[in-house]
């Protein structure tokens, strides 16, 4: 992972990185990646994902009303009446 890669990931994640910290992030990011590389050492060819049982975990199609929606609306940074309010999204 190089400098451009870090900038691309930061952009996708909507993160702002100060110029001076790009090097540090690149280094740390590569450390994390190489740690996960260890998983690649295990041969998983022809091995399917582990599941306790090959059966469906499903829910019946029934409506259960959630009663505390005001707490959800209250969790948002901003609201207007019963809407969540966000910065203007330009659509045209």
């Amino acid at each position: 992972m190089d400098r451009d890669g870090i900038l691309r990931i930061a952009k996708l994640a909507r993160l702002e990185i100060e110029d001076g910290k790009i090097e540090k992030f690149t280094e740390e990011f590569n450390k994390i990646l190489s740690y996960f590389e260890k998983l690649g050492e295990v041969n998983t060819k022809d091995i399917s994902p582990f599941l306790l049982k090959n059966e469906n975990v499903l829910r019946e199609d029934e409506v259960i009303r959630f009663k505390d929606r005001d707490r959800i609306l209250g969790n948002a940074p901003d609201r207007q009446d019963d809407f969540f309010k966000v910065k203007k999204v330009i659509e045209e």
Binding site: V63, I64, F66, R69, I72, L73, F83
Partner: peptide, 19 residues
């Protein structure tokens, strides 16, 4: 398990999962 009703008042069919 929120309802899929069309035309409900805003944000009445919401829960922790779908939000």
């Amino acid at each position: 398990s929120c309802s899929t009703d069309f035309g409900a008042a805003p944000n009445t069919n919401i829960c922790p999962v779908c939000t």
